[in-house]
């Protein structure tokens, strides 16, 4: 019998703990497929963050270190500086990367640290039960914005790709989504490019993946995917925000 579909080798057999309909599973698979296709499993070291994806170290078949909340890019800097021949990536959520870890994010980009950052933006703190995140949309209801995010009182969401596009050191920034098959294919291409950039020594590459949280959004998985299209993407437009090596000049 021909095998037409199988689990990537870079994923372990550990059952994922994610909620039904959560897109972490898809993103994990895309990262693992890229690791397989580039043939880098044996040289890759991952840095897990704090949040729903904290146990990524159990799911990927590569060496892993678990970092404190927001500090993954600093830990990754240490790992990469220790052995530049290794492929180093972080896997971080929006609270981790865009709130408590803002300084580490901006400065690892500024140093053009030769690492790959997978940034999963679902506009909420999932692990702690659905609090307002730095990327929570205006008027969006969360546990700590029960009347909707009032931008007058608590400020505006942070658009990470747009922010980092002004940082000279950042080499490649792209925002993708995983809410339909076409977008998933584009997301994989972006993730692959972000890893290939590191292999080519091109420096700091970040892929922002607009994701879902059906549990804390209070939506069915199908409705959550619709919410990405109707509410998330208008605020967080997809596309390449920076590519200093783009054909035809820097983008």
């Amino acid at each position: 019998m021909d095998v037409v579909f199988k689990k990537p080798h870079a994923l372990t057999d550990a059952p994922l703990h994610y909620c039904p309909g959560c897109t972490h599973g898809i993103i994990h698979r895309l990262v693992a497929e890229v690791i397989d296709e580039l043939g880098i499993e044996g040289e890759t070291i991952g840095v897990a963050s704090v949040g729903c994806s904290v146990m990524a170290y159990d799911y990927f078949n590569v060496d892993f270190v678990q970092a404190a909340h927001g500090r993954a890019p600093a830990v990754a800097t240490g790992v990469k500086r220790s052995d530049p021949s290794k492929v180093v990536f972080t896997y971080q959520g929006d609270g981790d990367l865009a709130a408590i870890g803002t300084a580490e994010t901006v400065h690892s980009a500024a140093r053009r640290e030769n690492i790959t950052v997978i940034f999963v933006n679902n506009a909420i703190y999932g692990m702690t039960g659905g609090q307002m995140a730095p990327t929570t949309l205006p008027n969006m209801v969360t546990q700590t914005s029960p009347y909707g995010r009032n931008v007058e009182a608590v400020g505006y969401p942070i658009k990470v790709c747009e922010l980092l596009s002004e940082v000279d050191g950042a080499a490649y920034l792209e925002r993708v989504a995983v809410n339909n098959v076409a977008n998933i294919r584009k997301a994989k291409a972006a993730i692959k490019k972000a890893f290939q950039n590191q292999l080519d020594g091109k420096g700091f590459s970040l892929v922002e993946v607009v994701s879902t949280c059906p549990t804390n959004w209070g939506l069915t998985p199908a409705k959550a995917l619709e919410f990405v299209e109707t509410d998330m993407l208008p605020y967080y437009p997809l596309g390449v925000y920076k590519d200093i090596y783009a054909e035809g000049g820097e983008k």
């Binding site: 970092a67 500090r71 830990v75 790992v79 500086r81 220790s82």
Partner: peptide
């Protein structure tokens, strides 16, 4: 490697990164 970090917090986490690879830091 000498690296002036963006904060003491970042510096100690860079230490964690190197130490996790088994080198003195």
């Amino acid at each position: 490697t000498f690296l002036q970090a963006e904060s003491e917090i970042a510096a100690i986490n860079m230490v964690i990164g190197v130490s996790s690879t088994g080198k003195r830091v």
